[in-house]
């Protein structure tokens, strides 16, 4: 089992003809993802490696039955692309695009509240169910199919580091999700934790957070109240100075809120096994799970 995506997922790619879109579409296909369509306005009727390209998401969904979308469009068009996918009835939207203005995401978030779809990202590596379906830009090779670990993270490469250590310890993954580093995003930690809790094959969860906001604190409280499976937690940025934005738009300590220390303490107080040294997250997971 897995959460959100599996062998049945039929993917379309928005921005499939761009440089990044082409590269990562090929990587997804190579991994075994069922990519059924691409969308680039004005290039409808063409194809990319035999994958049909459409002018609009609605056309692509009608013709191919796609139920998931992977978005690579540039930031000024990111919000538009997400809303287009949602309006066309796509269930799962994964937005890789980095740099969508916050004001756009505020509107998107309220727009999506009236739709039945799930958004992952933006500014995220995507989602992968190892051995079944990869929707994103993560290197497929480092993953190991079959569980028992579910991974949820705010980062990209940091997630790869964690997954790589898990795999080297012989711990496979059910599903790995990067929820993205922006202050306003779609799926949050709690949505993913809830799904992992319900998934019988996920027997342990690794949660990777970073400084900024209070999503980790909220998730820690949720875990204590609703998650029966063991959770290993890690927070990046314990040494980051306040007031400086550490790359991700969401990673900033403002005043006394969002510090790494507060997050670590919230995790510990709620029964999460906190890993304080990234080099050890594989070993700790091995012990805990």
């Amino acid at each position: 089992m897995s959460i959100f995506v599996n062998k049945e997922t039929k993917l379309l790619v928005q921005g499939i003809t761009g440089r990044e879109g082409q590269f990562h579409t090929r990587q997804c296909v190579e991994y075994g993802t069922n990519v059924v369509a691409g969308v680039t306005p004005g290039k409808g009727g063409q194809d990319m490696d035999g994958i049909p390209v459409f002018n609009t998401v609605r056309n692509a969904v009608e013709a191919t039955g796609a139920n998931a979308s992977l978005i690579f469009v540039p930031p000024p068009f990111g919000a538009d692309a997400i809303m287009e996918a949602a309006d066309a009835g796509v269930d799962m939207i994964v937005a890789i695009t980095e740099g969508i203005p916050v004001m756009d995401m505020l509107k998107v978030k309220h727009f999506l509240a009236t739709k039945k779809c799930r958004l992952i990202g933006p500014n995220c590596p995507g989602i992968i169910t190892p051995g079944e379906c990869k929707i994103g830009i993560m290197p497929g090779k480092i993953h190991m199919a079959g569980g028992p670990v579910g991974v949820v993270s705010r980062s990209g490469t940091l997630t790869y580091e964690v997954v790589d250590q898990l795999t080297k310890q012989g711990l496979g993954q059910t599903t790995c999700i990067g929820i993205g580093g922006d202050p306003v995003n779609g799926t949050n930690f709690i949505d993913v934790l809830e799904a992992f809790e319900k998934d019988p094959d996920t027997r342990g969860i690794v949660m990777v957070g970073e400084i900024g906001g209070n999503a980790e604190e909220k998730a820690a409280e949720y875990i204590k109240a609703h998650v029966t499976k063991p959770v290993v937690g890690f927070i990046a940025g314990l040494t980051a100075p306040p007031g400086r934005r550490m790359g991700h738009a969401g990673a900033i300590i403002s005043g006394s809120s969002g510090t790494g220390q507060a997050k670590v303490e919230a995790m510990k107080a709620n029964g999460i096994h906190v890993c304080e040294n990234l080099g050890e997250i594989g070993e700790i997971s091995k012990k805990v799970f």
């Binding site: 490469t157 990046a236 940025g237 040494t239 790359g247």
Partner: peptide
């Protein structure tokens, strides 16, 4: 990657040194 960069700063500090940058 920003997350890995922050974690790398932390691990430098854990090893007893101080990061000069992000």
């Amino acid at each position: 990657g920003a997350g890995l960069a922050m974690a790398t700063m932390d691990i430098i500090k854990n090893a007893g040194a101080e990061p000069a940058n992000f």
